[in-house]
Structure formats: structure tokens, C-alpha cells
Amino acid sequence: MLEITPLHYSLLSAALFMIGVIGVLVRRNVIIIFMSIELILNAVNINLVALSDQLQDLAGQVFVVFVIAVAAAEAAVGLGIIIAFYRNKETVNIDEIQIMRW
């Protein structure tokens, strides 16, 4: 119990991942949903770094760098979309973004 194994990191990662998912599914504010996605990405990153250390392989850390880069790109584009949408509909409520329903 006191010994910290990769399983602990994985459980931490899974918990953080679930918190992010719950945020994505439950919140209606699009900005908070995006932040939840960032949490999910962080959960993944923790896993990668932990296993990189465990396996003494730098590939995991390289992946983290790429994930951060992709997260930056995603945040930039996603927030641009939010601004454009807000400009048109005066809202960021995801329930009101439902033009693709039947």
C-alpha cells in the first residue's frame, strides 16, 4: 500500500479521466466541457509519464509532448469555434447547439 506502483498512477489516471468524462457529459457550458477535455488529456499524460518512468523508455514522454501540442491546437480551434458560435447565437449552452437533430 505504501509502495507506489504504476497501478497507483493508473488508478489516479483513471479517476481523473472519469472526472473529465463526467464533466463532458454533465456540464452545459461549452467552455467547461472543453476544460473537462483538458482534464482527460492530463489523465492520459499522467499514465504515459508514469509508464515511461517504469519502463525507462522516453517514448512516453515524447508522446506527452505531442499530446500537449495537440491539446494546444485543439484549444485554439475549439475556442475559436466557441467565439464564432457565441457571436451568432449569444449563447454557449450546449443544449441550444442542436441544429443537427432530426
Binding site: M35, N45, V49, A50, D53, Q61, V64, I68
Partner: peptide, 26 residues
């Protein structure tokens, strides 16, 4: 976890860049 570079990136890019971006949007 002995990943100092990633930690620095995390602070600079995430906490510094992306989150500031979120703040601006909010």
C-alpha cells in the same frame, strides 16, 4: 516521475498558455 522537461512544458504551455487562452475566452 523524473520527467522534468515535461513538467516544465506542462507549466509553461498548459498552465501558462492554454489556460490563459481559456480565461480570455471566458
Amino acid at each position: 516521475l523524473n520527467a522534468e522537461f515535461v513538467a516544465v512544458i506542462q507549466v509553461l504551455v498548459y498552465a501558462g498558455g492554454i489556460v490563459v487562452l481559456y480565461l480570455f475566452v471566458v
